[in-house]
Amino acid sequence: MASRSAQEKEWRTQSDLETLSRAAEIQNDRTRMTAVQKHAAKQVANLNKVAAPAKAKAPAKKRGK
């Protein structure tokens, strides 16, 4: 019987293979990739809204010695 860590490594390897296979499948499907890109653009826009207030703040003044 394989050790637990060997079993976990085998499971992780199989899972990684499945993930990469799905990614390749999606990348080769124009309709799905277009949908993913649109969704990603929306997510970026939402994150920029959250980050914008942090960007707008003036940098803290450095104290002299």
Results as ranks from 00 to 15, higher is better:
1 M>F: 12
1 M>H: 01
1 M>N: 02
1 M>L: 05
2 A>P: 15
2 A>Y: 10
2 A>G: 10
3 S>M: 06
3 S>G: 06
3 S>I: 09
3 S>N: 12
3 S>L: 10
3 S>F: 15
4 R>V: 01
4 R>K: 09
4 R>D: 00
5 S>P: 10
5 S>N: 12
5 S>H: 09
5 S>E: 01
6 A>M: 10
6 A>K: 13
7 Q>Y: 04
7 Q>E: 05
8 E>S: 09
8 E>N: 13
8 E>P: 06
9 K>G: 08
9 K>A: 11
9 K>I: 09
10 E>M: 03
11 W>T: 00
11 W>Q: 01
11 W>N: 04
13 T>S: 05
13 T>F: 03
13 T>A: 02
13 T>Y: 06
14 Q>S: 09
14 Q>M: 12
14 Q>D: 08
14 Q>P: 05
15 S>P: 07
15 S>C: 11
16 D>E: 14
16 D>N: 14
17 L>C: 02
17 L>F: 07
17 L>P: 08
17 L>W: 14
17 L>K: 14
17 L>A: 13
18 E>C: 09
18 E>Y: 13
18 E>F: 02
19 T>C: 15
19 T>S: 15
19 T>W: 12
20 L>P: 09
21 S>A: 11
21 S>I: 00
22 R>P: 08
22 R>F: 13
23 A>V: 07
24 A>H: 10
24 A>N: 03
24 A>R: 11
25 E>M: 04
25 E>N: 11
25 E>W: 03
26 I>G: 11
26 I>H: 12
26 I>K: 11
26 I>W: 07
27 Q>I: 11
27 Q>H: 09
27 Q>A: 06
29 D>N: 08
29 D>Y: 06
30 R>Y: 10
30 R>V: 11
30 R>H: 10
30 R>A: 15
30 R>L: 14
32 R>S: 02
33 M>H: 07
33 M>N: 08
34 T>M: 03
34 T>C: 02
35 A>D: 08
35 A>G: 15
35 A>N: 04
36 V>L: 08
36 V>D: 06
36 V>C: 03
36 V>G: 02
36 V>A: 11
37 Q>H: 07
37 Q>K: 13
37 Q>R: 09
37 Q>W: 07
37 Q>D: 01
38 K>L: 06
39 H>Q: 15
40 A>G: 07
40 A>S: 05
40 A>W: 01
41 A>Y: 06
43 Q>S: 14
43 Q>L: 00
44 V>A: 05
44 V>T: 02
44 V>S: 00
45 A>P: 02
46 N>A: 12
46 N>K: 12
48 N>F: 05
48 N>C: 07
48 N>G: 06
48 N>H: 02
48 N>I: 08
49 K>G: 13
50 V>L: 12
50 V>T: 03
52 A>D: 05
52 A>N: 10
53 P>T: 00
54 A>R: 04
54 A>L: 15
55 K>E: 04
55 K>I: 01
55 K>N: 03
55 K>G: 05
56 A>Y: 08
57 K>L: 03
57 K>H: 04
57 K>A: 04
58 A>Y: 01
59 P>E: 05
59 P>H: 04
60 A>W: 10
61 K>P: 06
61 K>S: 09
61 K>F: 03
61 K>V: 01
62 K>D: 12
62 K>M: 14
64 G>T: 05
64 G>N: 11
64 G>D: 06
64 G>C: 06
65 K>C: 09
